[in-house]
């Protein structure tokens, strides 16, 4: 499966994501935000970092990057579009996912490893998990997910909430850590599964996240 990892000016988790994907035989390519055609790729990944310096709001400038029209097209075509951390912020700013991520309720940047509860195990992103409670690193200053109560009720009813924090670190509404769109092909999360795929880091709970995506697309998983 061909995967694009989009590098915006200021992205800094693009290579972590690239290696996590390469490790699972995804055939990833790092693609510039100036790219206007993503038709060759089966899945699009927006990495973490500080795109455009996080100026104005996280993701607010990146959503108007040249590549974003192609990302929207991929989403409309039903391709898998995943945003992690800053990538999640970009997808919400672009309106491809509901809600917004803004400043943590508890002041400051959080760098930690937190427990997540898998709220929906029947998704493209969670089907390979054996456990419903996993540990994934977080690193963000603006991870406070907000969505109005009417939209939240719709999202709950449609099982769009994929991951919740076991112990809310940032003030997110309904402890939300990761959500998908109604169709299920666009997904975003603040925690970093790409930082938890190798035993040498002491945590491999991110591995089934990527394995789930491959399984969904019917590909064999080749763990190196």
């Amino acid at each position: 499966m061909k995967a694009a990892v989009i590098t915006f000016p200021g992205s800094n988790c693009d290579l972590d994501l690239f290696h996590a994907l390469a490790d699972l035989d995804f055939e990833p390519t790092v693609v510039s935000a100036q790219t206007t055609d993503l038709s060759n790729y089966d899945a699009i990944f927006l990495p973490g970092g500080f795109s455009y310096g996080d100026y104005l709001r996280s993701g607010a400038i990146a959503r108007f990057a040249p590549v974003m029209a192609a990302v929207s097209q991929a989403a409309a075509d039903g391709k898998i579009v995943v945003g992690i951390c800053n990538g999640f912020q970009i997808l919400t700013e672009a309106g491809l996912l509901p809600g917004q991520l803004f400043g943590n309720e508890q002041p400051g940047f959080i760098c930690d490893e937190v427990d997540l509860l898998i709220d929906n195990s029947n998704t493209t992103y969670t089907n390979a998990y054996a456990d419903s409670r996993i540990k994934i690193p977080i690193a963000h200053g603006e991870g406070n997910y907000y969505v109005d109560s009417a939209t939240l009720a719709e999202m709950e009813a449609n099982h769009q909430i994929v991951f919740r924090y076991a112990d809310n670190p940032n003030g997110s509404v309904a402890n939300i850590a990761g959500v998908m769109n109604l169709a299920g092909n666009v997904f975003g999360m603040m925690p970093h599964p790409e930082r938890a795929v190798d035993a040498i880091t002491g945590n491999t709970d991110g591995h089934p996240f990527f394995k789930s995506i491959l399984q969904t697309l019917g590909m064999a998983v080749g763990r190196k």
Binding site: A60, F64, E93, G99, F102, Y146, D148
Partner: peptide, 8 residues
């Protein structure tokens, strides 16, 4: 379109 996010 750009300066605000109407969610918040």
């Amino acid at each position: 379109a750009l300066l605000i996010n109407q969610n918040t």
